[in-house]
Design a protein around this nucleic acid. Structure first.
Lengths: 128, 128
DNA sequence: TATTACGTTTACGTTAACGTAAAGTAAATA
DNA sequence: TATTTACTTTACGTTAACGTAAACGTAATA
């Protein structure tokens, strides 16, 4: 497990451009250390980046993803704050569960189309 | 089951604006009939809209979703076309399965945070 | 030592997916 | 008949998430 990463290493690993990584920093979603003028990324930075890209794949905005990343910190605060926080978690969860339902439907639709395809293929093959 | 819908009926049902629906038509993703100048939506149009919004929730672009909708038609063509089509379906499926894995991870992360919250709550409650 | 590789900042450009506003039509209702 | 109510077209505006290009710095290599 490497201790630090350059910007182009991360860009290559995740299949994105360095511009994208700098953009995330510009917007405050990443805060790498510097060696002189060069950016130095820690494993924690790398993890943040991974989470950002995961959120992106699921159609979350950067703000939404940043919100989720914040949630991952260990929960603190008084009773009221904790209770509010639990409510927020519940809201996020139902969003994600909706997405999961959408996914299941799409996947099963795809599967049924694939079956039809194989039937049609057998049709064609049977005619030669 | 209604036979036709007005634009505002659909907008209200799906929680979007009429502008959004007109935009989808402008881009060719919907093609309602007309009664004079008024748009008349069939149940099939409504289904298309539902699929578009489902894709949107999952972070698909309109083009990607339109592609998927096209796939849902009954498959036709010669052997080569069918085989190519099956490959495309497989690609789409692995995309969606990646999304599903992402979702599962996020959901389980959320759940573990929620547990921590309840522990913290018990802590606080035990102190009064 | 020249040049290649990798990095930097600054700044304007682009695209998708709508928002918003203006100005008009057409049917239903007071 | 006057006025809502619902709908229309046209057109410019906005935001997120980067792309692209210019001009420059620095460190390793030929």
């Amino acid at each position: 497990m490497k201790a630090t990463y350059s910007i182009s290493e991360l860009a290559e690993e995740f299949g994105i451009t360095t511009r994208t990584i700098r953009f995330y920093e510009e917007k405050g979603y990443l805060t790498p250390k510097r060696n002189g003028t060069r950016r130095i990324y820690s494993p924690a930075d790398r993890t943040s980046l991974r989470l950002i890209l995961r959120g992106k794949r699921l159609g979350l905005t950067l703000d939404e993803t940043a919100d989720m990343i914040k949630m991952y910190g260990s929960p603190s605060g008084n009773q009221k704050q904790l209770e509010k926080f639990i409510v927020r978690i519940g809201e996020k969860r139902s969003e994600l569960e909706q997405k999961r339902r959408d996914l299941e439907v799409m996947l099963s639709d795809l599967q049924s189309v694939e079956k039809k395809c194989h039937v049609a293929l057998a049709e064609v093959a049977g005619r030669e």
